[in-house]
């Protein structure tokens, strides 16, 4: 057993064995490395056979009115801050993110504790692990994504924001070259939002990626967490 372990990252990611930094780096790789992404898909397809292991159990009565009326399929209760665990100095970053984001709009009071429409925060760690994390938030009351990340894109390029659910990126919009960026959260994303989602920024041709997925390097990414 002195041989190094084989690299089975795609299978481990597909199976859901990873957490923390390992999971984040696998997710990042699935966005930037098409071969890796294909391998993850290959494994996912193989593993679906195990769905038959689950024995059916009679479900409670359908509460159709609650489902049809539900404004959003967000997680039912607030999460703990465990997803910060993989970000170094998590507490300090969370605090500075909150501070940064509150600055552009000082007239809005902080939401009361029991407010049902919280704000989701993410600290997008730079891929090269240098520099400071990018502050991002999703204001569920306003359906708005805010990012403070001026000057990310070099001349002739745009920085594009993505939300990644279940390993699939969905474009949110382009980041402003100066100051804070505010982007409307697409209704489809809003409905499906959960704190498993990751925000990521890629560098793209002017006007954004010509493809439905990022074509340029992902320069920063981070998981969403509830405030």
């Amino acid at each position: 057993m002195t041989d190094p372990d084989p690299d089975m990252l795609a299978a481990e990611y597909a199976l859901g064995l990873l957490e923390g930094t390992e999971r984040a780096s696998a997710m990042r790789r699935s966005l930037t490395d098409p071969d890796f992404a294909r391998e993850v898909e290959w494994w996912r397809h193989r593993f679906t056979a195990m769905f038959d292991e689950y024995r059916p159990v009679a479900a409670p009565e359908l509460q159709i009115d609650r489902i049809v009326a539900a404004p959003v399929a967000a997680p039912a209760t607030p999460r703990s801050g465990f997803r910060w665990a993989f970000v170094p100095l998590a507490g300090a970053i969370a605090a500075s993110v909150a501070l940064l984001l509150s600055r552009p709009e000082p007239v809005v009071p902080p939401p009361p504790v029991a407010q049902p429409q919280p704000t989701l925060l993410a600290a997008l760690a730079p891929t090269d692990q240098r520099g400071t994390p990018i502050a991002a938030s999703i204001d569920l009351a306003r359906n708005e994504v805010r990012v403070v990340a001026p000057g990310l894109a070099p001349a002739g390029k745009d920085a594009q924001l993505w939300i990644i659910r279940d390993g699939v990126p969905h474009a949110i919009g382009l980041l402003a070259r100066t100051g804070a960026t505010r982007l409307p959260l697409p209704a489809a994303e809003r409905a499906l939002l959960n704190t498993d989602a990751v925000l990521a920024v890629s560098i793209e041709p002017l006007g954004g990626s010509p493809e439905p997925t990022p074509t340029g390097p992902v320069v920063a990414s981070g998981a969403l967490a509830r405030t």
Partner: peptide, 28 residues
């Protein structure tokens, strides 16, 4: 729903959590 509830129950481990998750699944 029986199939999906079986999945929720197996992973969540208790009925009340599984019911909440099942509701969320059909909302999605």
């Amino acid at each position: 729903s029986a199939k999906l509830f079986g999945i929720c129950l197996r992973i969540c481990g208790d009925r009340s959590s599984a019911e909440d998750v099942l509701h969320e699944v059909y909302t999605i």
